[in-house]
């Protein structure tokens, strides 16, 4: 596969699956303001997905649409990072998953603002404003709930312990990223990891949370190896178009 296609699917699949998981909170969050905020982030993520899939579909040149990519690929063909498919166990997990994603997503989008690939550069310049707002919000909540009550600290620490091992999958690279880095499509990739480490070290310390010592052990999403939750996410998301494959909606 053209490395551009693979890379755009890695990005678009990650924003789609997180958007899907985020949107599921609408009507079920702890306060009305969070219903609204989660819907808002979900909307941004789904919008970004459409842009990534448009670039992927065009580069691929097989006449597939963004909807074909979202609804007619199988679990092994999805290339999202494993972090975003981790379940909506509780609101602490949802917030921590969002924060760890944002801590990677912002430096990634900032780097892509200087991409040599015009469509990717345009996408990043549009998305980076949304992403900046997302991390302001999620960083603030991580600090307030980490340094909150005993119970809220325990909840946030539990979520961090569960999710930290998956954060590395966001930054996993292989020959696809290396090729694109060499072409200037992915400039400053080395800075993304450093920015993630600096952001999380500072914020989690302010939140009085402890970074687990087991490191970022879990990877594989970028090559289509997922966790057991992924199949259910796709089964739900794809159920209507797959039941009526000839229909337009």
């Amino acid at each position: 596969m053209d490395p551009i296609v693979t890379f755009c699917l890695r990005m678009g699949d990650t924003t789609l699956i997180l958007g899907q998981q985020t949107a599921a909170w609408c009507g079920h969050a702890p306060v009305l303001e969070e219903d609204i905020a989660f819907a808002n982030m979900g909307l941004d993520l789904i919008g970004q997905t459409q842009l990534w899939y448009e670039i992927a579909a065009e580069a691929e040149g097989k006449g597939r649409t963004p909807d074909d990519l979202a609804f007619f690929r199988t679990e092994r063909q999805f290339l999202n990072a494993q972090l975003v498919e981790r379940p909506n166990t509780d609101f602490a997990h949802a917030l921590m998953r969002q924060y760890l994603f944002d801590a990677w997503h912002l430096p990634m989008q900032e780097a892509l603002c200087d991409s040599s690939h015009e469509a990717i550069r345009d996408l990043a310049q549009k998305s980076v404003k949304e992403v900046r707002y997302h991390i302001d919000r999620s960083r603030d909540l991580i600090v307030r709930l980490g340094d909150g009550s005993d119970e809220s600290r325990a909840k946030m620490q539990g979520a961090l312990d569960a999710l930290w091992p998956y954060a590395g999958d966001l930054m996993a690279t292989d020959e696809v990223e290396e090729t694109l880095a060499g072409q200037g499509v992915l400039p400053g990739l080395d800075r993304v990891r450093r920015a993630f480490d600096a952001e999380t070290a500072a914020t989690l310390s302010r939140a009085t949370l402890t970074i687990p010592e087991n490191g970022h052990a879990r990877t594989g999403g970028r090559t289509g190896i997922h966790t057991e939750t992924m199949g259910y996410i796709l089964a739900e998301m794809q159920s209507v178009p797959r039941t009526f494959p000839d229909a337009r909606w």
């Binding site: 789609l16 609408c26 219903d35 819907a39 909307l43 789904i46 909807d67 979202a70 609804f71």
Partner: peptide, 20 residues
């Protein structure tokens, strides 16, 4: 979570957000 296209998903999500 089951909207049949990306656009319909975004529109529905925006709508429910408006209700909130």
């Amino acid at each position: 979570t089951r909207a049949p296209s990306l656009q319909r998903k975004a529109i529905l999500l925006a709508k429910v957000q408006d209700e909130a």
